[in-house]
């Protein structure tokens, strides 16, 4: 399969301004802005799986949100399929499938099928094609049998799988998986890995995974980026990055204990 960059980041920076407290306002002081991402540059080609690893607060989720077009970078270039994700009032976001740890983003009173059908309708799918896409997404994540059960009866693993199904409905070019295998039992984790590999290698989807699970990242990713303090401090294959990651996590552990 010919490689083309589905995601391109070039020197992406994100700085958040901090809302001043009343005491600071009275003293005419403003808290300094917080730099969350600095000079992030990498590409993901079609069919490639790229992993993001780093300690809590390293900037992984902010980076994911920037790529998803839910946060606008302060500077730099971020292109998904050649356009910024916020292009056309956010229409470009349709090219992105997003799986987060948040399992409350479904309606508890509706069934899994009804929930997916709602998102398929939002994605402008009509009648027959919508039902087909929903059934296919449910089958892919192994929820066909439970599709007509209310979402509130789903286990956390099933909720996570439904979230994955939602991300696949509109056939996105890029998948963002933010701690997506959290809550899955070992067997389902294996299915999740197989599904990711199938999506990337057979269907050419570009996948960006943020995870703390080194074994999962080793099994899945072609390239890993280690984020620390908002910067990429190491990139490459698992062997190249794991030693640096161990050092960063050990430092974090020491700092926490100190």
């Amino acid at each position: 399969m010919a490689s083309r960059p589905v995601l391109r980041l070039h020197e992406v920076c994100k700085t958040f301004t901090v809302t001043p407290r009343i005491r600071e306002l009275l003293r005419f002081r403003r808290p300094p802005p917080v730099e969350v991402l600095r000079d992030i540059s990498f590409e993901i080609n079609a069919g490639q799986i790229v992993g993001l690893i780093g300690p809590n607060g390293a900037g992984k989720s902010t980076l994911m949100r920037c790529v998803a077009g839910l946060v606008v970078p302060t500077s730099g270039e971020l292109l998904v399929d050649g356009s910024a994700p916020t292009t056309g009032g956010g229409r470009q976001r349709r090219r992105i499938g997003w799986v987060s740890r948040e399992d409350r983003s479904f309606n508890l009173r509706l069934t899994g099928r009804e929930n997916l059908s709602f998102f398929a309708e939002l994605a402008q799918m009509d009648g027959g094609s919508r039902a087909e896409a929903v059934a296919e997404a449910l089958a892919r994540v192994g929820l066909t049998k439970q599709a007509d059960r209310p979402f509130r009866t789903y286990s956390s693993g099933m909720r996570q799988r439904l979230s994955m199904g939602r991300a696949l409905i509109a056939d996105p070019a890029l998948l963002l998986l933010d701690e997506a295998s959290t809550g899955l039992d070992p067997g389902r984790r294996e299915s999740f890995k197989r599904l990711c590999l199938q999506l990337a290698k057979e269907q050419g989807k570009a996948i960006l995974i943020a995870s703390h699970d080194m074994a999962e990242l080793e099994a899945l990713c072609d390239v890993l980026h280690l984020l620390d303090g908002g910067r990429i401090v190491a990139s490459g294959g698992f062997a190249e990055v794991s030693a640096a990651a161990d050092a960063v996590f050990a430092r974090e552990q020491d700092e926490e204990e100190a």
């Binding site: 956010g90 976001r93 992105i96 987060s100 983003s105 479904f106 998102f119 939002l122 994605a123 402008q124």
Partner: peptide
């Protein structure tokens, strides 16, 4: 608060819509 807004935004609609 439930994360539904973000999920809806990923379907390609603008926030005002």
């Amino acid at each position: 608060t439930t994360g539904m807004l973000e999920a809806c935004l990923m379907t390609g609609h603008s926030l005002p819509a």
